[in-house]
Measured scan of single mutants.
Amino acid sequence: MSIQHFRVALIPFFAAFCLPVFAHPETLVKVKDAEDQLGARVGYIELDLNSGKILESFRPEERFPMMSTFKVLLCGAVLSRVDAGQEQLGRRIHYSQNDLVEYSPVTEKHLTDGMTVRELCSAAITMSDNTAANLLLTTIGGPKELTAFLHNMGDHVTRLDRWEPELNEAIPNDERDTTMPAAMATTLRKLLTGELLTLASRQQLIDWMEADKVAGPLLRSALPAGWFIADKSGAGERGSRGIIAALGPDGKPSRIVVIYTTGSQATMDERNRQIAEIGASLIKHW
């Protein structure tokens, strides 16, 4: 067993022997301040990774656009098919120029040779490549099948209805392509620590998230040296922004954090800054 596999296998073990965790309302004060600064709703939840206990939450059962955070769930569904012998990570998928959609920095470079399922998941999570996500959605049967996968996990809230990039439209009061912070946090925890996926697939999923290259201005910008984070960000229309993450000190994750916002007129930089400040408060009061 590799060191990384050992780390993920012992996530519940280490967490069980940690000192009790206590909620700190100071972080919620910052979440509410972010709402004021952005002029928009902000949803927040913080779960203990081992027990699933909610440590703090704000608007945990209000719907927010998922945006690209759905790509972690998508690759979880792909990995479940791999575990069941219905898919192979090494299978190569070929596609054409007509398949390319807006923001496809990886797939646009491989029109000639195609990409493997493993490479597509890596591109979808680490670079948020939209064509990679659409190609992977095709392998599982489309958005409705991802929703069905989530329902089978016990998540009857999260739903995907459309493809990239239309799913980022974020129309107010439109339930399409949305989740709730509580539902997303619980589902992410199941994917990373539950028995739904094999140990190898859980490790692969967290490795992809740990290698995320496009979430630097968010929670990662607030992390002290030595902290662990595996995350996936999302951005959408109407001032929408979000991030889902597993993080913790001492090089291992111990909490799940989900943050979503929508309806702001603020710039992307300002949305990023507010999420980073929430992260800084979380870490300060850990």
Results as ranks from 00 to 15, higher is better:
47 L>C: 09
140 I>N: 04
172 P>W: 09
200 A>R: 14
135 L>V: 10
23 A>S: 07
121 C>V: 03
191 L>R: 00
268 M>R: 07
236 G>D: 04
83 D>S: 06
200 A>L: 10
186 T>G: 14
30 K>Y: 06
97 Q>W: 11
251 G>P: 08
153 M>T: 11
239 G>I: 00
209 M>Q: 02
23 A>C: 07
85 G>N: 11
20 P>E: 12
3 I>G: 06
213 K>R: 12
141 G>L: 04
30 K>M: 12
47 L>F: 07
280 A>V: 13
132 A>K: 00
27 T>P: 06
224 P>V: 03
161 D>H: 07
246 A>E: 06
97 Q>L: 14
155 D>H: 01
31 V>T: 06
222 A>K: 15
47 L>A: 09
216 G>D: 08
62 E>N: 07
94 H>I: 15
158 T>E: 00
200 A>D: 15
125 I>E: 01
12 P>Y: 13
233 S>I: 00
216 G>P: 05
39 G>P: 05
231 D>H: 04
159 R>I: 06
119 E>N: 08
214 V>E: 05
14 F>E: 01
10 L>R: 05
242 G>N: 03
149 F>V: 09
129 D>I: 00
193 T>R: 15
208 W>Q: 03
56 E>Q: 11
174 D>A: 05
235 A>N: 05
97 Q>Y: 15
174 D>S: 07
72 V>R: 00
189 R>Q: 14
67 M>C: 13
269 D>A: 14
279 G>N: 03
202 R>D: 03
61 E>W: 12
225 A>P: 15
18 C>V: 07
98 N>E: 15
57 S>M: 13
2 S>D: 07
265 Q>K: 15
71 K>E: 00
171 I>D: 13
79 L>T: 02
67 M>I: 07
203 Q>I: 11
184 M>F: 09
172 P>K: 10
276 A>D: 05
151 H>L: 14
105 P>S: 05
217 P>F: 07
228 F>S: 07
53 K>V: 13
13 F>M: 15
239 G>L: 01
8 V>H: 15
12 P>R: 05
239 G>P: 01
222 A>T: 14
274 Q>S: 10
27 T>C: 08
109 K>I: 11
146 L>E: 01
13 F>N: 03
24 H>I: 10
211 A>Q: 14
202 R>Y: 05
12 P>V: 11
3 I>W: 07
213 K>W: 06
260 Y>T: 03
39 G>D: 12
